[in-house]
């Protein structure tokens, strides 16, 4: 139903994502991860947070997670405030 299709839910529009990985990641990875904000969580995990332009960009980021052998825990799309 295109009429009721939520604009913000369009997967090919920019949206904020949170990628959670295992281990505390150094801040120096920020440029590598296209500027995502890197925050450590108390339980030893790391959140990569930031706007991702579309699905292709998201997959590109996940590939980078893969390439450095970072265990991936979750990927969450955050509704923009």
């Amino acid at each position: 139903m295109p009429a009721s299709h939520s604009h913000s839910a369009d997967p090919d529009r920019p949206a904020v994502y949170q990628i959670r990985v295992k281990g505390h990641l150094d801040g120096l990875w920020q440029a590598w991860f296209e500027g995502l904000r890197i925050t450590s969580e108390e339980n030893g995990n790391t959140l990569l947070t930031g706007p991702v332009s579309d699905q292709a960009a998201l997959h590109g980021l996940l590939r980078k997670v893969r390439d450095i052998g970072l265990p991936l825990l979750s990927v969450v799309r955050v509704e923009p405030e």
Partner: peptide, 11 residues
């Protein structure tokens, strides 16, 4: 340490 193994060791 909780640091990512690679970060810690490459440093």
């Amino acid at each position: 340490s909780h640091r990512f193994v690679l970060d810690y060791l490459v440093d």
